[in-house]
Structures are given as structure tokens and as C-alpha cells.
Design a protein around this nucleic acid. Structure first.
Length: 652
RNA sequence: GCCCUCGUAGCUCAGUUGGAUAGAGCAACAGAUUUCUAAUCUGUGGGUCGCAGGUUCGAAUCCUGCCGGGGGUGCCA
């Protein structure tokens, strides 16, 4: 059982019958922020001032007198305005650690109230190459699935594949008109990617070219406005403000012009492409038509779709295999397509959806714009599929919660979707947009593929593995560390370290923040990285191996733990807070709560490693105790990393 | 225009949901090594938590306004 729950229980029984809502107050017992205030602190007395009509210090003193904690804690201490500081007894820590270290699941009991979670994550668009932007959803969703499952919940991992969207119209059109048959024969997936990019480039060109004169005019106007402003006779303050606005509108005009040029110039500079564009005017419309034909069941397009889809999925699955990501279901958009017509009809019949400006809409309280579920041309939208998906999931899985691990830019969409779901009557399910921030490039702007060339996810992973290989398997380092690896060993280590680096870099940021993508830093072997933690894990094993003693769950009772040094105590306390860290993750679905914990634990072990010799310990009892501590640390580090989808190696 | 979101050390980021003197890593500087794997450890310097008010025992955290960045905003996903 987690220590925190244990302490809270004791407080609860002391508060029972004395204050109105003990459970609420007990939540204000937390691990101490500052170790000089003990291990845990109870910030309970201060808010009770009003209810009990006494000074907080007096309340705290009274509470301390009522508490029965002497088997767990040193004598309690009231400090400052009424904090109660708790310090665990060393023998309690040692006993707890012995118990949890030999338990199969580190003593973590499965949840008593098992909940069903559907987690919707990754969701790449098939036929578009996966890139750096797909990392976040995939890795965060996978970590949450692993952690919730470990805590005993029922988890349904569902990959809502984009397999029915407009990109297929583009690829079908590209295939019909631009395919290189021999390339498609030998390497179909890259050829499909090429076709997709070609069509996309041409469409971008056709869209942007006519806008170019307007953008140029807008820029010129903005510049003229600035000049006019500079000579005008406004008062200083007003003028400064307007100058700023004028400069800003120049910047945005410039930016607009630049982005148009970026779409125009790759084609304009290539006569062949210009010819292609001329031969395929209104390309976007043509592609849309192919999409419509597909959706209407056109035999040729459906056959092409059926041919392309498995190829693309194979490609995606190869990435998942590398990353050790597994789903329970992969119900893509196409899976829901047959349900959409009926869904919209029934919403109209119920009066929940109405026709407005030719489109079928759901109007929701608190939103300016409606949620459109059928376009005026009859086509369905993302929102329609999402509603059908909720209906399907509710019917087949009866979830307590559905988590959508999707980019924060879609938060409006999800707010509407959730409001619509409630309006339809799905009230006994928690719908949660587990949103995440943008991956930024070195310029602080959204990470874009470098001018034209796509920085694919596969390339990125290869790069990380290669750098991991160079760093970890540096011959000098291996010699100094006395490590003698075969080439296979090295490759395996590089794989685990490289992939772990990418995942950890993502998971260690608060998911709601943007973060700067920096491959050097990710695969760097210093600081808050997976590699550091993996390294500390390897050291726990290395000590045990060198002791030439067998240490395992079954015989761990022969290695009784005694806590003597500060470093041992800090490490033991840290180890026992693993379960707390996991629960922290689940409160707001923040995997970085676990990375923070693991990094702290790894650092704590490094301190222990420096200060507490194991093999050269002063006596046998100390040696055995410290071996047990190493064993426990290794176990928690390995388990923690595994819950993040990150592996370990015995030596590195 | 309206709505959402962010602003913390030179840089990259945490901050356990309102707790005590705001923390890490990188970079800089000073130490520790015939090692239990130095990919390490110990220490130093570095802050107006964007600004101004408010709420209360107590605010980086909640509320209001302003400044600045990002995103969204009726038929894309």
C-alpha cells in the first residue's frame, strides 16, 4: 500500500467526528517539498481555522494529540502557521522496502475500482509518411495505456486511422496520371509517397499562384501605411501604438507572401512541373472528385484503395514494431463510414440536428458556430465520424472514460464534440481531450520538414539509433568501463537507447507545453534523459553481478535492509514513492510525472553509489542490505521505464 | 473582432493542482578519479516567476485588466 494512503487513513480517523469533511482535508497531505520539513507535510490546520474557530497552531496541536502514527513516524512536529511535519521511522522504511522489493508488482495493488478506458492515440493518416509530429500522440497514448493497465484498469487502445480522407483522392488521382509503374512494382510505398507529395505540391502551386499579386499588394500597402504613419501628427503614445501595429501587419504580410512563394517556387522553377500543372488544371477539384467517387463506392477507386491501404498499413506497423507500440483495435475512419448516413438521419429525426445554410448542423449552447455533420454537398466530416465513433465505443466497450490524445489545436473541435455527445445523451462517460503542444523547430516555430524534403519518422529513429551507437559504443569508453561487446550486443544497445531517447524526450515534457525538437539533446547522454536512467539501471545490475551472489524475489528475505546513512534513507523513501508517482500520472494524464520521478530516483541512486560502498561495505549485514537496495532500485527503474515504453539493457 | 492557450535562470524545461527560503539539466566556474562502469559525484554563481491590481493565514499557481508569443474561429482533419 502506498505510504501516503496509509498516512491519510490515520488522519482521516483522527478527524472523523471532529470536522465536517475529513476526506477533503486529508487530500492536503503531500510529500514535503523541502526535506528539512520532513518526508510528508499536512497542510490541514490552516483552512480549518474558520470551521473550528481556533488558531491553526492550536488545531494542529490538537490533531497531533489525536493521531496514532507512532508505528510509522517519528514524533510529529508542528511548524510555522500550523503545518504538521511527518518524518518516517527508519525501521518502517526498511520494512516497507523489503516487502515491496520482493513483491511481484512492487507491492502495488490493482485498483479496487476497475475502470474501462478507451484511449484514442497515434491516428496517422495512411498514405502520408509519418513524421516527427506523430511522435507525441503515439508515445503519450502508449505510456498512458501502459500505466493505466498496470494499475489494474481495463484499457482499450484504439488507433483511429485516417484511412478515408481526401488524401486518398490525391493518391488515386496521382496513381491514375503520374505513376511510374516499375517503381510502384518494386517499391510501392515510396512511390505512393512520391505521388502524394507531387499532387500536394501541384495543388499548393495552383492555389498560391493567383494569390501572389494580392499578397504583394497587401505588403506594399502595409509598407505605405507605415510611411504615412511616420509623418502623421498623432500624439506620441497613440503613434507608438499604431506604429507597432503597422510593423506587425508588415510582418504578417511578409510572412504570407513568403509562404505563398514557398509553395509556388518549387514548381515555377521546374518547367516540367509547370507543364504538369497546366495539363491538370483545378487539380484539387479533380482529387476531390476521386474522393467522392471512392466514398460512393466506385469500383475502380475502391479497388485502388484496397490495394493501397495494406501497403501503407504495413509501413506504419513497421514503425510501431520499432517503437514497441501495440493497439487492441485499429478501427479507421473507413470502418465508421457505413454508419454515418444513419447517424445523421437519426439526429435529424430526434430534432438534435437541423439544416442551416444547406448543411446539417448541431447547434450547441455556448458555441458561436454549430458543429456541421454533413456538408451542403452531402459529404460527411471528421465530426460525423467522431460522433459515430463515440456511439460505437459506448455500445461495444461501455467505457468509463474515452481519452483523445490529440493536438491542442483541435480543442475547439473536441469541446463541441463532447457537448454534442452530452446533448445526444452520453452523460455517464468521461470524455477527455488529452491535448498536447507543438513540436517546435530550432527557430521556435512549428517543426516543419526542411524545404521540400520530408524528415520522416523512420529517418529520425535511424538517426537516434546511430548516434546512440556512436556515444554508447565508443571504443574508448567501452575499454575504460571494461565492457566487451559483440557487434550484435552493440546494435541491440543502440536500438534500445536510441528509441528510448526519442520517447523520453517527448514524455519528459509536460504534454501541454510546446517543446523544441533537438535531436542532439535527445540522444545526449547527460542530464534528464532516458540514457542516464538506463545507465543507472545497468549499474544496479553490475554491482549485484560482481557480488557473485544470487539475489531474487524469492531469496530477498535473506538480505534484510537496514537504513544507516542519509543516502540510503533518501533512496529508500524515493523507492517507496513509485506508486504515488503512478497515481500522479493518472490525475491529469501527465506522463512527465513519472519521468520526473524516475530521473530523481536515478540521481538518488547515483548519490548512494558514491557514498555507500556495497561490495566493500564494512560488514556483511551492511553489504547484504545494500545489495537489496540495489536490487530494489533496479526493479523500480526497469518497471518505470517499461511503463513509458522504454527498455533497459543489463550492461551498457 | 471573439474564444482558447502560453510567458519561470544566458539556453532548454520542471514546479505534485493554493503551502514554508521558486527547482533541474545544459552552458560557466571550482573540486573529487590507480572506480562497485567518471555516461558519475560534490560545490559556486546565476530569478522583479511578462506588468499592474485583487482574492486570503499564504499566490508562479485562482480572479480582473494590460503587454507579448502561439493556436482556433460555418462546410479541412
Amino acid at each position: 500500500m502506498q505510504i501516503l494512503s496509509l498516512i491519510r487513513e490515520r488522519f482521516e480517523s483522527a478527524l472523523n467526528g471532529w470536522v465536517k469533511n475529513p476526506l477533503e482535508h486529508v487530500q492536503r497531505i503531500t510529500p514535503a517539498r523541502d526535506p528539512q520539513h520532513g518526508d510528508y507535510q499536512a497542510n490541514i490546520a490552516m483552512p480549518l481555522k474558520a470551521e473550528l474557530g481556533k488558531a491553526p497552531q492550536a488545531i494542529a496541536a490538537e490533531l497531533v494529540a489525536k493521531l496514532k502514527l507512532d508505528d510509522i513516524c517519528e514524533p510529529l512536529e508542528v511548524a510555522g502557521p500550523g503545518f504538521i511535519n511527518l518524518r518516517l521511522r527508519n525501521d518502517f522504511l526498511a520494512r516497507q522496502l523489503e516487502q515491496s522489493a520482493r513483491a511481484e508488482r512492487l507491492g502495488i495493488e490493482p485498483a479496487t475500482q476497475v475502470k474501462t478506458f478507451v484511449i484514442d492515440y497515434s491516428a496517422p493518416n495512411v498514405a502520408k509518411p509519418m513524421h516527427v509530429g506523430h511522435i507525441r500522440s503515439t508515445v503519450i497514448g502508449d505510456a498512458l495505456a501502459r500505466i493505466l493497465r498496470f494499475l489494474g484498469h481495463r484499457v482499450i487502445a484504439d488507433n483511429h486511422l485516417g484511412d478515408w480522407g481526401t488524401q486518398f483522392g490525391m493518391i488515386i488521382y496521382g496513381y491514375k496520371n503520374f505513376v511510374d509503374p516499375s517503381a510502384f512494382q518494386s517499391t510501392p510505398v515510396p512511390e505512393l509517397s512520391r505521388l502524394y507529395r507531387l499532387v500536394q505540391t501541384l495543388i499548393g502551386y495552383q492555389e498560391s499562384l493567383p494569390k501572389l499579386p494580392f499578397a504583394e499588394k497587401k505588403l506594399a500597402e502595409a509598407q505605405a501605411a507605415l510611411v504615412a504613419l511616420e509623418t502623421s501628427k498623432l500624439d506620441e503614445k497613440q503613434k507608438a501604438k499604431e506604429l507597432k501595429a503597422a510593423k506587425k501587419s508588415i510582418d504578417s504580410a511578409q510572412e504570407g507572401l513568403d509562404s505563398l512563394n514557398a509553395k509556388v517556387s518549387p514548381v515555377a522553377s521546374n518547367p516540367e512541373l509547370v507543364e504538369l500543372s497546366k495539363a491538370h488544371e483545378q487539380l484539387e477539384k479533380r482529387c476531390q472528385l476521386e474522393t467522392v467517387k471512392l466514398h460512393e463506392g466506385d469500383a475502380e477507386n475502391l479497388a485502388l484503395w484496397n490495394q493501397f491501404l495494406p501497403l501503407s498499413i504495413q509501413e506504419i506497423e513497421a514503425v510501431y514494431r520499432r517503437l514497441d507500440i501495440k493497439f487492441d483495435h485499429t478501427y479507421g475512419e473507413s470502418f465508421y463510414h457505413p454508419m454515418l448516413e444513419g447517424l445523421v438521419q437519426s439526429l435529424v429525426d430526434q430534432g438534435l440536428a437541423v439544416t442551416s445554410e444547406g448543411a446539417i448542423c448541431i447547434f450547441l449552447e455556448g458555441f458561436d458556430a454549430p458543429m456541421i455533420i454533413r456538408k451542403s454537398d452531402g459529404a460527411f466530416l471528421y465530426a460525423t465520424t467522431d460522433l459515430a465513433t463515440i456511439e460505437y465505443r459506448m455500445k461495444h466497450f461501455q467505457p468509463d472514460a474515452i481519452l483523445y490524445v490529440v493536438d491542442f489545436r483541435q480543442s475547439d473541435h473536441f469541446q463541441k464534440l463532447f457537448a454534442a455527445a452530452r446533448a445526444i445523451g452520453y452523460s455517464n462517460v468521461q470524455l477527455n481531450h488529452v491535448s498536447f503542444g507543438t513540436v517546435l523547430g530550432p527557430d521556435g516555430k512549428p517543426f516543419k520538414t526542411r524545404s521540400g524534403t520530408v524528415l520522416g519518422l523512420e529517418y529520425l529513429l535511424d538517426e537516434a539509433v546511430e548516434r546512440a551507437y556512436q556515444a554508447v559504443c565508443d571504443p574508448d569508453r567501452l575499454m575504460k568501463a571494461g565492457l566487451d561487446f559483440t557487434e550484435d550486443d552493440k546494435r541491440e544497445i543502440a536500438n534500445i537507447v536510441g528509441h528510448g531517447a526519442i520517447k523520453y524526450a517527448d514524455l519528459s515534457h509536460n504534454r501541454t507545453s510546446d517543446y523544441e525538437f533537438n535531436i542532439d539533446k535527445m540522444v545526449s547522454l547527460e542530464g534528464n534523459t532516458a540514457t542516464y536512467i538506463q545507465y543507472m539501471y545497468a549499474r544496479t545490475g553490475s554491482i549485484i553481478r560482481r557480488s557473485e551472489m544470487e539475489v531474487n524475489d524469492a531469496n530477498l528475505h535473506e538480505f534484510p535492509i537496514q537504513i544507516q546513512q542519509q543516502a540510503e534513507r533518501d533512496l529508500a523513501l524515493n523507492l517507496l514513492q513509485f506508486e504515488d508517482a503512478l497515481h500522479q500520472v493518472t490525475v491529469e494524464y501527465l506522463p512527465n510525472m513519472l519521468t520526473v520521478y524516475l530521473y530523481g530516483l536515478a540521481k538518488q541512486f547515483a548519490t548512494f553509489f558514491e557514498e555507500c560502498p556495497v561490495l566493500k561495505a564494512e560488514d556483511q549485514a551492511t553489504k547484504r542490505s545494500r545489495l537489496a537496495i540495489c536490487y530494489a532500485t533496479g526493479k523500480v527503474l526497469r518497471q518505470g521505464l517499461e511503463l513509458l515504453g522504454i527498455g533497459v539493457v543489463p550492461r551498457m
